[in-house]
Design a protein around this nucleic acid. Structure first.
Lengths: 263, 263
DNA sequence: TCTTGATACTTTAGGCTGTAAAGTGATGGT
DNA sequence: ACCATCACTTTACAGCCTAAAGTATCAAGA
């Protein structure tokens, strides 16, 4: 059974999120701190970037900093809060300037691209789903950036929020496909081609009536212009990016129409 | 370091996914099986539905069936495969019939609604992100349903796939917000109102310059017509549903425009 | 200068997890 | 009657998070 943070822990979390990131050196008795919250968060992010969220343990973070796992508890209340900090600090990386001089649409496209890049650099972001919003500066920063760019559509702000939410979800969903494919390739050491080849052989054998049961899927597969990844970009990753761009354009077309309608 | 399934395990997984769900009673020496893969999967789904993915352990599933954890390994290779089965069987629940008689748009809306309901009934679906597609009958069923409904737009199938992907992502993203809010309320025992109240007081205290740093967010909060949940539906859940519906309409507007454009 | 108390960090320990390996006991075919 | 087979349990182990206790280091007060 998971134990949840009480009132006091909530305060502690918020202080870590919003407090000063460079702490004044301690005065008074006792040894000086050898670490800092920010150093711990940075180390944790490095691990998650390089080896995935599954490899992120307190031991691993401690080891990377030359300490034991328990040493971290001097700085951070627990793993949950550490992950919240990783999440919020990483969101804070999103570039904030998207010139509206060539219109809101191109600004929105650029912003969506930044979001995509951010998630591809830190794919574990997608596995971190705080049960409730973290309410840290990074999360506010992302919301502010999205809202302010899309407010340039001239739509009323509550509707802009819906657009923001749809855009955000399209980005996250499609980048997830790209990131997972990349991670699977790295971790299994099996290329997409090998994986597909083995799987489709198995499918053929175990479900020979596949194209009768799922005709549209089969038709799509048959029409598939698979063109064995002529470029560097792996097939699934490319597919994910294309579907991201296409879905985004559709959404923005809808937004444009909404603008026209309301006059 | 995570160890990944080799070739043989892939076969075993696919057999479990595609094989007959009612196994013929064994002949030959030895005791008769007291459980079945389907019973185990059903028990696991029950646990995940009721207590969340974090509460799903092999011990818990075994206990629910009156066995030890290890008994399950007679039927299922490991927890990974069990989760894949849960995922695929649950996707198979999606209703498949969406009459196109009143047009593709209303069919698409109904289908999106079904997807939303399915995810709200089984919120753990969102936490299960198989590194690569499971390729089970349930997954195919969902793809087939989505593709066949949206193929009625008349767009070329590859473009339909992009629409499907965007629609799916909008549903998943917004239902995630709803599900997480619901889960947090259940697990913490703290209502949304209490949570917000405590948090906003803390924010005010720790980040007094909030509305200067994030003016658009602040403006949205100020214009907020929070109307303290007059209905039964909690605020965040209602917000999530509204944003789902609005985002979906925008996307479908974009699709309609694409149809017109291509003539 | 010696003592005191605060504090960074380590050690130990406990309860949880998934699952490998070995043991148990019932069953049906020979 | 024997025996191979197979469902299931027991035991064990490595890993996880983290509570609690112990240790070493430092600054200030007596």
């Amino acid at each position: 059974m998971v134990v949840f943070a009480g009132q006091g822990d909530a305060r502690r979390s918020m202080e870590l999120l919003w407090g000063p990131r460079v702490v004044a050196p301690r005065t008074g008795p006792g040894p000086k701190p050898g670490l800092s919250v920010e150093a711990i968060v940075a180390a944790a992010i490095d691990i998650a970037d390089a080896e995935g969220m599954a490899a992120l343990s307190m031991r691993a973070v401690g080891e990377r900093l030359g300490r034991t796992a328990m040493a971290l508890y001097t700085y951070v209340p627990g793993k949950t809060e550490l992950v919240d900090l990783m999440y919020d600090r990483t969101l804070g990386e999103l570039p904030s300037s998207y010139p509206l001089s060539s219109g809101w649409r191109s600004a929105a496209l650029a912003l969506a691209g930044s979001l995509w890049d951010l998630h591809l650099r830190h794919p574990w972001l997608l596995q971190v789903s705080p049960a409730r919003p973290v309410l840290g500066p990074g999360e506010f920063h992302v919301q502010e950036t999205l809202l302010s760019v899309l407010a340039a559509t001239g739509l009323p702000l509550p509707r802009v929020r819906w657009v923001v939410s749809a855009l955000f979800n399209i980005v996250r969903g499609s980048v997830q496909a790209a990131a997972e494919s990349r991670q699977a390739t790295r971790e299994t050491g099996q290329s997409e081609e090998d994986w597909w080849y083995a799987r489709s052989a198995l499918l053929e054998e175990l479900a020979p009536d596949l194209s009768a049961r799922f005709p549209t899927v089969a038709r799509l597969g048959a029409e598939g212009e698979y063109e064995a990844s002529s470029s560097e970009e792996p097939y699934l990753e490319r597919e994910a990016r294309l579907s991201f761009e296409a879905g985004l354009e559709l959404l923005l077309d809808g937004v444009e129409q909404a603008i026209v309608r309301q006059g």
